[in-house]
């Protein structure tokens, strides 16, 4: 464990809590992409299967349970409890265009052709594009509530810190995982455009408005 990864995981946890709290407190999921949340749920489910089989550390196991629970809770709130506030009209990204290529790529490029490894690889590829429906929805509605943009910013910080974590691990532990790194770079790049808007708009108290 290193400080970059610890802060990254905390930022990731913060993002998930921010979103869950926002939906719960406002009793509404307006402006939130349910499709992205479904994809994140799928990412955690396929990646954390080893929760049962292999024990790495208390921290690792606790965080996996928290991420899974928070992700399922968010999906439940969006698709069941506050279903009436779900914005179908703007959450229209075709997620099959993300899931199918991720499955294909996981079958083609992986470290080991075993079920758990393929599922892990699938979750890595899927996570790198899972935010696209949310970014697409923000572009369609032309704006994002400030809480939603804080959520996206925290997610972006988590990804950025993971890049630093991989640099540190390569330098200090001579450890690297190209699949995780390449997918992670792709994912972080997707946030860059949003980062620019967040820094220039939201932090100046303006609403996050995309140029029409």
């Amino acid at each position: 464990m290193n400080i970059f990864r610890l802060l990254g995981d905390i930022s990731h946890l913060l993002a998930i809590i921010i979103l869950l709290r926002k939906i719960w407190m406002s009793r509404s999921c307006a402006g939130i992409s349910g499709k992205s949340q479904l994809l994140f749920g799928l990412v955690y489910t396929t990646r954390y299967l080893d929760l049962i089989t292999s024990y790495i550390s208390l921290y690792n196991s606790v965080m996996k349970v928290v991420f899974l629970a928070a992700s399922y809770a968010t999906i439940y709130l969006m698709y069941v409890k506050f279903k009436a506030t779900y914005d179908h009209n703007h959450d229209t990204f075709r997620i099959e265009f993300l899931v199918v290529p991720a499955v294909a790529l996981a079958l083609l490029i992986n470290h080991d052709f075993q079920v758990v490894e393929i599922l892990w690889t699938f979750s890595i590829y899927l996570e790198s594009v899972a935010i696209l429906p949310q970014l697409f929805m923000v572009s369609k509605t032309g704006e994002a509530e400030s809480i939603t943009s804080h959520y996206l910013f925290a997610l972006g910080v988590y990804r950025g810190l993971y890049l630093l974590n991989w640099i540190y691990r390569f330098w200090a532990e001579d450890h690297y995982d190209l699949i995780a790194i390449v997918a992670g770079v792709v994912q972080t790049v997707l946030y860059c455009d949003f980062f620019y808007l967040y820094i220039t708009k939201v932090l100046r108290g303006k609403k996050l408005q995309l140029p029409a």
Partner: peptide, 10 residues
């Protein structure tokens, strides 16, 4: 070293 045995990252 490219090692992927220990998947210790979340």
């Amino acid at each position: 070293a490219q090692d992927n045995e220990t998947k210790d990252e979340l």
